[in-house]
Design a protein around this nucleic acid. Structure first.
Lengths: 295, 295
DNA sequence: CCTTAGTTTCAGTTTTTCTGAAATACCATT
DNA sequence: AATGGTATTTCAGAAAAACTGAAACTAAGG
């Protein structure tokens, strides 16, 4: 049966114009190449060369060379593609994160990733946690980074990092005058702008604060806008502030370090990630680890 | 190193969804296929299937399957092309003959050739002997059939057939009244229309006749036109008359059977014919042999 | 928990491919 | 036409690769 290595051998001989040089480029002895060539000619039932000094092809030889070279090129390309993909040199990864991660961690991930894996296509989207869950489940995204509630059927999730909540206020606000962690009691007298992130804080004092709150917003930009206008203060994770805050805002950490947003890294439970995706996931963990260390 | 048979094995397993069926279609034992697959996974450093019941592919598996199937199709096509060409099932042949052969022998050759070799492209041209020589030498034609003089450097030639000259005359001509072979003496008193074919007859009486001739034409149609108009008689090979003669003309053989046109089959001396061309050449010889037998 | 179908492992066998040496063929040169 | 040098083929044995059958193992379904 015709084998690709046989074609490669023939093409080498045809290119070199003699058997010995071809054998050298193939890393074989001339006798091995000779036998291989003979086998090919026997298989085809026709000679490929005019003389046994292999410097002139028959019509069949020319035909075979033409097709063999095309085939070899195609084959080598395929092999490179497969091996490259397996080694995560090529490939594509679709990733969806919450906006604060997209604006803080991901740029650093990319900075570490590029150069070494230039051929990997990465598609990054920032959407809300709930949509991320759905996108991952629908297989429209390979990796998700989100805060998850309980809906985790069919999902593989792992805690990536936690992000401590803190208080945001305008620079003119009394709380901005001081420094250091803030106790819950300090906030009891403040007007709190509730938001979907801060609502998830389990601590009892926080619950009370939220119940008392008369203002709730979902969009981070509008929350910050209100804070800037001194309409009230809000509770947000530090990452969010790093991503969207400005000089016109003051962030002070909470004393209660249990008030944290949990960010999980998600993928479908029933499918393995592509090598490139796994590589990127690893890089995300590395990056988060090194950022955490610096803080 | 990645081999085409490995890809074929993997594709079979991926297609079948299990190893045993794939082994059956490949004509191997499951254990052989299992080992091959393991080798492939080891080579790539990543699993190709989600579980060891081979019914769900990993991302890498899907990628490899996609590329492997394209590759296998391509490879099989190439192999078919090469083997087909070698067996003369495919290929193309360019052939040039003198017009009389193109009009008599070639149609019969084609009739015998088709059906079995439908995929072979044949290009047939009818031109004069001298041009045929040049076309063959320039490698613009694979096979030539022509009357050759001496210019045969770089040409391989072999006598294909001889074609006896005879006399052509109008039905109203005195020679048309009788039947049977004609002696040279009988022609001495006739007005001969010389032509490039009859000029090549070596016999002395023919030389004399030509020297005496006052009329010479090259184009067969015009020669026959003149004969038909009873301007004179001419000497032409029988094949030419079979190809171009009409009921309005009478052909009588010469008694001198040495007066013959020699038709050679020609090819370049330094190149082997393609299998399809060789096949066709063989067919031409067959056909000529069986026609000669019938005559 | 047991059965069953399917897969992997293992050791030995068969097949294929390779090597090195010797024989042979080819080409150029005399 | 003989000769020398180079290239190729042949051959037998060695090495590598692929395959088989039996047995061990594993997962899924009853």
């Amino acid at each position: 049966m015709l084998k690709i290595e046989t074609l490669r051998g023939f093409a080498a001989v045809a290119r070199c114009g003699n058997l010995s040089d071809a054998a050298a480029t193939l890393g074989r002895t001339p006798s091995a190449v000779s036998m291989m060539l003979k086998q090919l000619e026997t298989h085809l039932g026709e000679p490929l060369f005019e003389t046994d000094r292999k410097n002139r092809l028959t019509a069949l030889g020319r035909f075979v060379l033409d097709h063999a070279e095309r085939e070899l090129h195609q084959f080598d390309t395929t092999v490179r593609a497969i091996e490259g993909y397996a080694k995560a040199v090529y490939g594509s990864v679709r990733i969806a994160t919450v906006p604060s991660i997209a604006g803080t961690i991901m740029p650093q991930v990319m900075a570490r990733h590029f150069g070494r894996f230039d051929e990997v296509d990465i598609e990054l989207r920032d959407i809300d946690s709930n949509s991320i869950l759905h996108e991952v489940l629908r297989n429209r995204v390979d990796i998700g980074i989100a805060t998850i509630g309980q809906n985790r059927a069919g999902l593989h999730s792992q805690l990536l990092m936690t992000d401590a909540f803190g208080v945001v206020c305008a620079p003119s606000h009394p709380l901005a005058k001081e420094d250091g962690p803030i106790e819950w009691e300090t906030l009891m007298t403040e007007r709190i702008i509730a938001n979907s992130l801060s609502e998830s804080i389990d601590a009892i004092p926080s619950r009370d604060l939220h119940e008392a709150s008369r203002l709730k917003a979902h969009n981070v930009a509008s929350i910050l806008g209100m804070v800037r206008a001194n309409i009230g203060i809000s509770l947000l994770p530090k990452m969010t502030i790093l991503a969207f805050g400005s000089d016109a805002l003051v962030f002070r950490p909470l004393a209660d370090q249990t008030a944290r947003r949990e960010l999980h890294i998600l993928r479908r439970a029933d499918a393995t990630l592509s090598p490139a995706a796994r590589m990127l996931e690893e890089r995300i963990r590395d990056t988060v680890a090194s950022i955490m260390q610096d803080m």
